[in-house]
Nucleic acid binder design. Structure first.
Lengths: 137, 137
DNA sequence: TCTTGTATCTGTAGCGGCTACAGATTGCAT
DNA sequence: ATGCAATCTGTAGCCGCTACAGATACAAGA
């Protein structure tokens, strides 16, 4: 990762679609390694950095937390097995599915209730009723 | 809301299943009105406070943001029409549906990819491949 | 070489929606 | 009077960024 560091943070940002501030943030929290610098102190990145950042971005797009990405990168760096990676992914999948379940419950309640609204200028509203309800006392 | 303020914050917390710290937080941000106090400075709540807090908790359970709840409470306090409330709810519904769509896309990608994993001790992993990919260049 | 304009630097604070302390005070029962 | 629980205020932390301010560095043109 030392050789052929030949572009700056702006270029890296453009080529990965990751915000400059976010790149520096990832470095600060140890997700992206500190790159070499110019004499003046500007960061210089290589292809390897770019690839790692793309990995991070893709993982974020798939909803992995920073901690999970840390794990994944650790595995990828240090000779992983498919089983190990799969375990992280399946665990994350559980989280996602729980969130979907929660959101779908919200959606159903809201959609059903809003459908019962007369709308317009009526001074009564089923939605207000639902929000005022305490469900399980 | 001044009369018959006859229970403390612990009691309110128990009766609404809202954390004590959260109750004070809601007061601080102006979601729950500042209640009267004892001589020593302890908060004293009434039925009206409890109802309002239940409304807030229900709204949070349905995913409304604090800002949206502010709006809803404003409407409810000041003579709402069904149409106004419905508008807030339908807008929120859109947000929820967008989140569900996003999560489902994550779920599908992850589930599909994990299904292609050989698992075990194989040193190759389709998940790593997917995470390394830049989708739309 | 000098200047201009952009890029980058560090450090800090803010977002939302809480949660978790520390350290002081109050309330109530014995 | 005493002991202990409840409550008080104020501040800092969580996540994953984002947005400044104010100081430098760099690259291109005159």
């Amino acid at each position: 990762m030392v050789d052929s560091c030949n572009f700056g943070i702006g270029e890296l940002s453009r080529r990965t679609a990751v915000n400059i501030e976010t790149i520096r943030y990832y470095e600060r929290i140890g997700l992206l390694p500190s790159p070499p610098r110019t004499e003046g102190g500007h960061r210089l990145y290589s292809e390897a950095h770019r690839k790692r950042l793309v990995f991070i971005r893709r993982s974020r797009e798939l909803g992995f937390t920073i901690d999970e990405i840390h794990n994944l990168l650790g595995l990828v760096e240090g000779g992983y097995t498919c089983g190990e990676v799969q375990a992280v992914a399946l665990d994350h999948l559980k989280h996602i599915r729980r969130k979907i379940t929660d959101l779908r419950r919200m959606e159903r309640t809201l959609a059903d209730t809003a459908a019962r609204c007369a709308g317009g200028t009526s001074p009564d509203c089923p939605i207000v009723d639902v929000l005022s309800q305490e469900l399980r006392q």
